[in-house]
Amino acid sequence: MRRSPEFLLALAVALLAAWALIETRSWSIQTALYPRVVAAPLLVLALMETFLSLKGEAPAEAAQTMDFTLSTSITPGLAQRRTVSAFAWLVGFLAIVVLLGFSRAIPVFVFAYLKGQGKESWTVSIVLAALAWLVFSLLFVRLLHLPFAEGLLWTLRK
């Protein structure tokens, strides 16, 4: 059996649909009607897709979706490394937002990315990090008065 990523993706959706259907067993008809109406065809379609992906790659036509295509000009190995790295930066940004709060995390993230990943000069990294913080403070905090949570580290210190 060939377990391609397409197969795993379709299988995951099939399992999700099956779980969604099982969950409806204990619900009243009012609550369960809509999830059943959509989860049942979803399960059938996902199982079809799972079965078809077991038989091999999708035909070329199926790949012609009305959507953008990821770049193909980079070698697969390098592309995979860069993908993991980009996603890690995003998760890292979330981590420092949780720890430091938005107002401190923004200059830290912008500076770290520009210097560490973008290999920009010290001046560019510092100026742009300060600019990001300034725009954030003026627009979102001062002008729009949006509430931003303090970071976990600051909350714990209090």
Partner: peptide, 24 residues
């Protein structure tokens, strides 16, 4: 309209149903 061929259509309807389920 979003995919070509029967397989593309299966994926299109699958995605549509998934969106409807997520709304639940």
């Amino acid at each position: 309209l979003s995919g070509r061929g029967p397989r593309g259509m299966i994926r299109g309807f699958l995605a549509g149903c998934l969106g409807l389920l997520l709304a639940a």
